[in-house]
Amino acid sequence: MRSLILALCLMSLPAWAQAPKTSSFDLMKPETQAMQRDDASNPAMLWIAEGRTLWSEKAGASRKACADCHGDVGSLRGVAVRYPAFKATQHKVITLDQQIQICRVQEQKADPWALESRPVLALSALIGLQSRGLALLPATPAEASTLAQGRALYEERRGQMNLSCAQCHDDNAGKSLGGAVIPQGHPTGYPLYRLEWQDLGSVERRLRNCMVGVRSEPYPYGSPEMVALEVFLRDRAAGLPLETPAIRP
């Protein structure tokens, strides 16, 4: 009787959750995996180099560098795996990129950088690199309502094609959409260098691609919906190691 109940419980989980949680790193060709593993060949390391320069550069009316407050960037180990995070001073959950924007304007007193701009991504990648290998963390109680909103968005059917994230990435992960294997969709490597973009981009850029793909109006960068989705996806991926800055096809 107990094994029947257990079996029924397992059957109510999405298909992929009955299988182990895996990173889409595993779906890549050996050549692409090798490109990610070798810091000397990973194009994302160009952004890391720019990030290091920005880290030490005095900027704004305060003439402050990131290093002046934070010291060595290594001191931010453990930060990237807990963002987006609830920020009491902001009264809401914010992403790492939004935190970088806040530091720039409030601490450095410099003119703002847009989300998805090169300097924001360079610093986001540099800070992410400090947590490479650490497990993504689950959402905290302070993030609970944002997490719930994120889950609802993940399960909501949208667009002219009327598809939800869950229908592909929970129900059909591992099967093929055209020539592409559908990944479970864990954000383990962001910001990452996507070969299709020939560029480094955030998880929100990738989510916008998906939304455009189902012919749905994408949410703007940094919108409450995007933040909620980021929280949900991180929580869903909790336990997987961070690969930032990753490469993807």
Partner: peptide, 19 residues
Amino acid sequence: TIMPSYFATEGLTRVARPY
């Protein structure tokens, strides 16, 4: 179903502007 309703124009959420 994941099969889109190819002739539907109602009951859809947040359709991209061109569509």
